[in-house]
């Protein structure tokens, strides 16, 4: 970076409604930041005490509700929601199939909408509600879509399955499960290499036609 500006941390034009961020701002003076940062960042900061320090400032607080449980984390801005779920929260039901938004294995619900968690920076879901495959069943009682996937054998290896199920639930909620054709189109963001597509369509149709609440 070229501009010689005193480091302010990741606080420019802060969204003041967010109290966790406001608290964070209070802390992120240069000194406290150094105290909180691993050694490598301190080394870098010592050489060029300017905005470069902000660039190596490593972590930011992230609060999100995952499967009904509040999570307070400290994450690098570059960490994706997918990697945070799998590596930090040990919620490995959400799968990494391509890491580039090209397969749908990482599909989760953010505030009720299905998205690819591999292209979602964790820091950008601050304050949001995340539902993963682990949050779909009510205790021992499986979600109707999970039951239907078992009944219609909507998988073989099972690896794309969590993403398929999260997508399938959303497909019905969105109102895109009104025909086989429509289901196929609206389930096309989830690749299944074992080729369980017809079974997946059958499972979704059964849940849709059964009128069960999804």
């Amino acid at each position: 970076m070229e501009s010689k500006k005193t480091c302010t941390g990741p606080d420019e034009g802060l969204d003041i409604k967010d109290s966790s961020r406001r608290n964070f701002l209070k802390q992120s003076t240069l000194l406290t930041a150094i105290a909180l940062t691993p050694g490598t960042a301190i080394k870098a900061a010592a050489d060029h005490v300017d905005e470069q320090f902000a660039a190596v400032f490593e972590k930011m607080p992230l609060k999100m509700e995952v499967n009904g449980k509040q999570q307070s984390l400290s994450v690098e801005p570059r960490s994706t929601l997918l990697d945070i779920l799998r590596e930090q929260l040990d919620l490995t039901g959400t799968k990494k199939g391509c890491d580039h938004g090209q397969c749908g294995a990482c599909t989760v619900h953010v505030d009720g909408h299905r998205v690819n968690s591999c292209l979602t920076l964790g820091i950008m879901v601050n304050g949001k509600k995340i539902t993963t495959i682990e949050g779909l069943a009510k205790g021992d009682q499986l979600h109707p879509m999970q039951e239907a996937f078992i009944k219609h054998d909507g998988f073989q290896c099972g690896y794309c399955t969590p993403g398929q199920i999260m997508s399938a639930v959303a497909c019905i909620r969105e109102g895109h499960a009104n025909s086989e054709h429509e289901i196929r189109e609206y389930m096309s963001g989830n690749i299944c290499r074992c080729g369980a597509y017809p079974n997946i369509v059958n499972a979704i149709q059964e849940v849709k036609d059964g009128g069960m609440k999804v």
């Binding site: 490995t92 039901g93 682990e134 069943a137 078992i150 054998d153 998988f155 099972g158 969590p162 499972a203």
Partner: peptide, 26 residues
């Protein structure tokens, strides 16, 4: 049909995300 016959013995693990693949041990 897709619903005929016995379902997979590991189906529940696969639909709940509890089935652990190689990269998922800690």
């Amino acid at each position: 049909s897709s619903s005929a016959g016995m379902s997979r013995i590991d189906g529940r693990l696969k639909v709940t995300g509890a089935a652990k693949y190689s990269a998922e041990y800690t």
